[in-house]
Design a protein around this nucleic acid. Structure first.
Length: 835
RNA sequence: GCGAAAGUGGCGGAAUUGGCAGACGCGCCAGACUUAGGAUCUGGUCCCGCAAGGGGUGGGGGUUCGAGUCCCCCCUUUCGCACCA
């Protein structure tokens, strides 16, 4: 073995060997237990960043562990390669997006190979090629057939910077998710939607299957879907004799309703304006409120504003007519776009009615209390009804039930469920995406492209302006087509799909990335699915991770798969931060992984990524911290290469003159070394199965090395036999094989083996060897540590008691005091309680 | 406002089930080797105290023989949702 650790040489050597041996190729093998490790596929931005390195180091540790445990491990990677950044770069440099994209993919592939991740590269999936995106189109057609893809004119979120529509999920604080300073504006456009709302209930329901998902992600999804149970009630606009439907979760408070609010976009408003005494004035005021409502999407807690319409609505429960107001905080898209205002029992209504001097009527009192005369704030808890006609005296819970029943039997309302989640708008007025496979015919209307005509190819030479409508609209040879139904002239849809469609099913494609007769191969999916472990950033908790679940449910309904959840276990890793902020070019705190590979090698970078913090927490990059990882690997290399030479020398001696069979008795030094090795192995094994605190695994591995390093010249001293040293070194190397595979394979070879550690069976720890024979038992007096006694593992309680009280220090503290009781926790401690 | 997670040395973090707080690493201090050290090795490093001893896991209370860990109240930070009726 070389005496110096040279990662550049070692890493390239092993990467070439691994590739030559097809070490990471995995194929369907019926009867053999499988394990599917999935990491979120990267967007090809040009260079990998530390977040990728962290993500893939975690995944690789698991993939390698499961391989060594004997599983058939699928560990694939691909490219989420449609999307805006490439298109923007293309506009800037006047080159096609495909050119950038494929060049970036090549570069990043090289970087990932340099990291040495155990990917089966034969299965690489690239979402921007027709062989992939034709199946996006296929899924779209299947959804269209089932009424799950539909077109409607709608108010959409439009980012003036991107010049495109954004999904609700892509609007953050009223601004574009990519341009956090750019407020989203509203536009009316014909858009394609996927009916995810049809699946809201199943998305919620099936969460009970996701027992191995982080609570946090499930909670976020639950909030996002936002189910609430309530009652719809028809008020009647007295002057127009038209119903005005409101939605409430608190119908029990309806006797306290003193006004009805409608959103500025409410359809009934047009009729009110028309019938109004002063239509002009009302229209302009409604317009003012509408503007204020739009603005308040960007600003938090905008002041309540509103205007009286001059109309009144009759409460069906008590016959009372209350004024109808337009209010800026009422959302058109949620519920019915109209709400009954109960200022006494809703804080928003309370604020509004206080500001506009509208009456407040108390109808709920805390159970067992008298009604308050004057409220300081709304009382929003459940309680007992007062001043509520026939319902007076009921509890809120009972009243909601009874009043909803009454609405149903009297025909003025019903119990209903509302969701916060809205249908997924997928149309994008952009070029670099999957064309939506629809055509518009003057005679036949909207016609889907027949399945046999897929893919609708994204044309290559398109002028990209980055302004206004879809670039495809400016390509007549693309737009002009014939109607699949009547053969007459027609034009193609020119919008492309949201790239989240691409990532909603890519992980199915890995199981057979070449199949061209269907999106997925049933046989392959049946073998490999579900994904056993998915690893990625928490930032995808609601976008990608809901869409992906939705797609699977649609696939189940189509009969493509026979399960409803694709991912058994999810792990969300923390971010890599530096100087207290996420690494970003704009903040100038980026650490380039490739520069670190050159300086320290991939193993050091991986080791640091896993050692610096437990994987679910944010990791603070430290330039001196990575030096520590580098030093450790150097020490490992030095210690093992030194011992490896000794081991080999002894082995060749042994071959010449075999010693008598090794004595079954270990020397105390051997026993100590083996104990440590098997304790570390036990910890790492348990941890890989469940907890994944790689930082502690590595810490213990460091302790094992420290133990070894203390045994100078073991052979010459003769206290530790070479085969014991060898056993210990092998444990150390095989643990490192999970985290730093290149140096591990090199050292494994140095210890006289051939081939990659990935093919070595994970060593089972020996519980008997790991067990302690003697321990130091802390002795407490009244809970305070006073002494330690050395005892053997099988010591009796009687003996512990005697030894503890015989201790000089302990005796001092017991002096003259009465022993109340003695608590002995086996193998933990002894506590003597005195008075 | 609602929901979730977290708060431990100078720093990253450990303590998996209520049982020795601070493993491991970084940094720092001292020493060895060295022409030299940003290499390597050895020792030290929670705070107060010469010591005996005392204090200590955001703050306050509680349960317990014993609390970083459990319970109650409060503070702070981060993240998600945010006028969802």
């Amino acid at each position: 073995m070389d005496t110096n650790y040279d990662p550049q040489k070692i890493e390239v050597k092993w990467q070439e060997l691994w590739e030559k041996q097809n070490l990471f190729d995995a194929d369907v093998a019926p009867g053999r237990k499988k394990y599917y490790v999935l990491e979120m596929l990267p967007y090809p931005s040009g260079d990998i960043h530390m977040g990728h390195v962290r993500n893939y180091s975690i995944g690789d540790a698991l993939a390698r562990y499961m391989s060594m445990k004997g599983f058939n491990v699928l560990h694939p990677i691909g490219w989420d390669s449609f999307g805006l950044p490439a298109e923007n770069a293309a506009i800037k440099h006047q080159r096609p997006p495909a050119e950038f994209t494929f060049a970036y993919i090549d570069r990043m592939r090289q970087q990932l190979k340099r990291l040495g991740v155990s990917y089966d590269w034969r299965r690489e999936v690239t979402t921007c090629v027709p062989e992939y995106y034709r199946w996006n189109q296929w899924f779209f057609l299947k959804m269209y057939e089932r009424g799950l893809a539909y077109r409607k004119k709608s108010r959409v979120n439009w980012c003036p910077q991107c010049e495109t529509v954004l999904a609700n999920e892509q609007v953050v604080d009223g601004c574009c998710w990519r341009h956090e300073e750019t407020p989203v504006v509203e536009k009316e456009l014909e858009q394609w939607f996927l009916k995810i709302t049809d699946y809201a209930e199943r998305l919620l329901d099936d969460m009970k299957e996701l027992v191995r998902w982080p609570e946090r992600v499930l909670t976020m999804q639950q909030n996002w879907i936002g189910k609430s149970k309530g009652t719809e009630v028809d008020f009647k606009v007295v002057e127009l004799d038209l119903p005005l439907r409101v939605f409430t979760t608190r119908v029990d408070t309806i006797f306290g309703c003193t006004v009805v609010f409608v959103a500025a976009e409410h359809p009934l408003l047009e009729k009110m304006i028309a019938a109004s005494k002063n239509p002009q004035k009302l229209r302009s005021e409604v317009e003012r409120i509408k503007q204020s409502a739009i603005r308040q999407r960007a600003e938090v807690n905008l002041e309540k504003d509103g205007v009286a319409t001059g109309f009144t609505a009759r409460n069906p429960y008590n016959g009372e007519a209350v004024p109808v107001w337009v209010a800026n905080f009422v959302l058109t898209e949620y519920g019915t776009g109209a709400v009954m205002a109960v200022p006494a029992h809703d804080q928003r209504d309370f604020e509004f009615c206080t500001a506009f001097d509208l009456p407040i009527r108390n109808v709920i009192v805390p159970k067992g209390e008298e009604p308050q005369v004057k409220l300081e704030a709304a009382f929003t808890d459940y309680g007992k009804l007062v001043n509520s006609g026939p319902y007076t005296g009921l509890s809120s819970e009972r009243a909601i039930e009874r009043m909803t029943q009454d609405a149903e039997s009297d025909g003025f309302g019903k119990g209903t469920i509302q969701y916060r989640i809205k249908d997924w708008g997928i149309s994008r007025q952009r070029y670099w995406g999957t064309p939506i496979p629809m055509v518009y015919c003057n005679g036949c209307g909207v016609v889907p492209v027949p399945e046999k005509d897929l893919p609708v190819l994204l044309p290559a030479d398109i002028k990209l302006t980055g302004t206004g409508q879809s670039p495809l609209a400016g390509a007549p040879e693309f737009v002009r087509t014939t109607c699949p139904k009547c053969g007459g002239p027609a034009r193609r849809e020119t919008d492309t799909m949201d790239t989240f469609v691409d990532s909603s099913w890519y992980f199915y494609r890995y199981t057979d990335s070449k199949i061209d007769t269907a999106p997925i191969s049933k046989e392959a999916v049946d073998y490999w699915f579900p994904v056993d472990q998915y690893i990625g950033g928490i930032e995808h908790a609601i976008l990608h991770l809901i869409y992906m679940r939705f797609f699977t449910k649609v696939m189940e309904d189509i009969g493509l798969v026979s399960f409803s959840e694709p991912v058994a276990r999810l792990f969300t890793q923390g971010m890599v931060i530096k100087d207290g902020a996420k690494m970003s070019k704009s903040k100038g705190n980026v650490v380039d992984p490739t520069a670190m590979f050159e300086k320290y090698g991939a193993d050091t970078v991986r080791l640091y990524m896993l050692f610096a913090a437990p994987p679910e927490k944010d990791l603070d990059w430290s330039d001196t911290g990575i030096e520590g990882a580098w030093r450790f690997l150097n020490r490992v290399y030095r210690v093992i290469s030194k011992h490896a030479d000794n081991v080999r020398a002894v082995e060749s001696l042994l071959r010449k003159a075999p010693r008598p069979a090794a004595s079954p008795e270990y020397t105390p030094e051997e026993r100590q070394l083996l104990r440590k090795a098997h304790q570390v192995l036990r910890h790492v094994t348990d941890d890989m199965e469940e907890r994944w605190h790689f930082n502690t695994d590595i810490a213990l591995t460091m302790e094992l090395l420290n133990e070894l390093a203390e045994m100078e010249s073991p052979i010459s001293e003769g206290t530790i036999r070479s085969e014991i040293v060898k056993e210990t070194l092998e444990v150390l190397v095989l643990i490192l094989a999970l985290f730093t595979p290149h140096i591990a394979d090199e050292l494994w070879e140095g210890l006289g083996h051939s081939g990659a550690t990935l093919r070595v069976a994970w060593p089972a720890y020996d519980a008997a060897l790991a067990a302690e024979e003697e321990l130091e038992l802390p002795v407490q007096v009244n809970g305070k540590l006073r002494a330690r006694i050395r005892v053997t593992i099988d010591v009796t309680e009687e003996e512990i008691r005697r030894l503890a009280q015989a201790d000089e220090k302990v005796a001092q503290h017991l002096n003259g005091r009465q022993i109340v009781k003695i608590i002995i926790v086996p193998q933990k401690l002894i506590n003597i309680v005195v008075k």
